[in-house]
């Protein structure tokens, strides 16, 4: 069990109302989808932002990952909409 920093960007950040947070004890075997689902279960802005993972993308330690990736030894999970730069 290790601490995981979670970061939110764009409308995910706005809906949740914060840039990120730290979760102190995360099971390394948990997947990104499991974790996002648990956060969505808090309701309110979390449910609004995280209720539909089809609308989201994720990165573990600054690398894009699929939602079935396990947290493993990662220290940072970012959750955000599909990117729109360029």
């Amino acid at each position: 069990m290790a601490a995981l920093d979670i970061l939110y960007f764009a409308w995910v950040r706005e809906a949740i109302g914060r840039d990120g947070e730290r979760i102190d004890a995360v099971d390394p075997a948990v997947t990104v989808a499991d974790l996002v689902g648990a956060l969505a279960g808090r309701g309110g802005g979390y449910a609004e932002a995280l209720g539909d993972i089809e609308r989201l993308r994720a990165a573990l330690d600054q690398h894009f990952v699929a939602f079935d990736a396990v947290i493993g030894s990662a220290r940072e999970l970012a959750i955000f909409p599909p990117v729109t730069g360029g």
Binding site: F9, V83, G86
Partner: peptide, 8 residues
């Protein structure tokens, strides 16, 4: 850059 860089 449009599809793989983290800008919004």
């Amino acid at each position: 850059m449009k599809s793989h860089a983290p800008f919004w």
